[in-house]
């Protein structure tokens, strides 16, 4: 890590913000691309599950396309997929799981180990649609926080989930999970599960910003730990960043954008980053970009070299 970051002043930061606000309509729409993609994957998964359960979507006779739900499913009758967190809880109750679900859990876990654990949160989890809506409305209405909770609370909830699973002999989170309730009831028939979603919506809207996903959800905490060494990352270019702070204002987990630490590491390294793709298109200087972790170092060295060239000119 050769060169010190260039010192941008307040004027540069304001210029960046101005650049963002004077974006053309097209550029503005283009900056929504990841959000649109995320909605597509979120609803796409729901549709695949729903179609296989209700409309007989099959790849062959009696072989549903995607049978089950996010807890456990079977893709084209061949590939089992299992929620690794649910599997862990059931394992802790003392039940010996069938091989199929263990293989499924390994596949899902391996996938998220590569692309980032919390990719589940931003790209698959149906509750994210609700919390995103709530967060958006909260910003529009300018609602201020009522209480503050530490974001590390979710790790305690995670520990409690595992402990209670072992003690009570019931998969503790699976029995109360609003994610599971909402998801199951969309696919297998409605009940009172939507009230849990409503509660999350109101909690996030009126009480604590990103309250559920960012502070409480043990599944998110689990995937945060899974994603610590993931390969798909947001690269940070310290040479172009003017510290305007626009990224942190749209990030649902702004603590992962601690620029001082990003200067050192060169990418968003926290497992709590969900690779949601909000920061990257919003950045007026293009300092945050999705990248493949093994290439990040060399890309940053190149960026440093370009910056040095530009300054010496």
């Amino acid at each position: 890590m050769s060169s010190a970051p260039p010192s941008f002043g307040k004027a540069d930061a304001l210029a960046s913000v101005e650049k963002l606000h004077s974006r053309s309509l097209g550029a503005n729409a283009w900056s929504w691309r990841y959000i649109v993609l995320r909605r597509l994957t979120q609803f796409g998964f729901l549709l695949l599950f729903f179609g296989s359960a209700h409309w007989g979507w099959q790849v062959a006779k009696n072989v549903p396309l995607l049978r089950g739900n996010l807890s456990a499913s079977m893709f084209i009758g061949l590939i089992p997929l299992t929620d690794p967190f649910a599997t862990l809880q059931i394992f802790l109750t003392g039940h010996v799981l069938r091989q199929e679900s263990l293989i499924g859990a390994a596949i899902v876990l391996g996938f998220y180990l590569l692309i980032g654990g919390r990719v589940f949160c931003a790209w698959v989890c149906p509750v994210n649609v609700v919390t995103d809506a709530s967060g958006w409305l909260r910003d529009k209405l300018g609602i201020r926080a009522v209480i503050h909770l530490p974001r590390a609370l979710r790790y305690f909830v995670l520990a409690a989930t595992l402990l209670i699973s072992a003690v009570s002999g019931l998969a503790a989170f699976e029995w109360v999970s609003p994610i599971g309730m909402a998801h199951r009831e969309i696919i297998f028939g409605l009940g009172m599960g939507f009230t849990a979603l409503l509660a999350i919506f109101l909690f996030d809207l009126l009480i604590l910003k990103n309250g559920w996903c960012g502070h409480l959800c043990p599944l998110g905490a689990f995937y945060s730990l899974v994603g610590k060494s993931a390969l798909l990352r947001v690269r940070f270019d310290k040479n172009t960043c003017t510290r305007c702070g626009e990224c942190a204002s749209v990030c649902p987990e702004p603590q992962v954008l601690n620029l001082k630490k990003l200067d050192e590491r060169g990418y968003v390294f926290s497992g709590e980053c969900s690779n949601c793709g909000r920061c990257s298109p919003i950045c007026p200087e293009g300092s945050l970009k999705f990248d493949f972790k093994p290439l990040i170092r060399s890309h940053n060295v190149q960026a440093d070299a370009i910056a040095v060239q530009r300054r010496t000119k």
């Binding site: 296989s52 089950g68 456990a72 109750t93 002999g169 199951r184 297998f188 009940g191």
Partner: peptide, 27 residues
């Protein structure tokens, strides 16, 4: 059974006469 069921509903999908249901919340 309470411990082992992962609540995935795969039995529900594969039941030919569609008699199985997953219990929704609040039932």
């Amino acid at each position: 059974f309470n411990a082992a069921c992962i609540k995935c509903g795969q039995c529900v999908v594969d039941c030919p006469p569609h008699i199985l249901k997953l219990q929704p919340a609040g039932g």
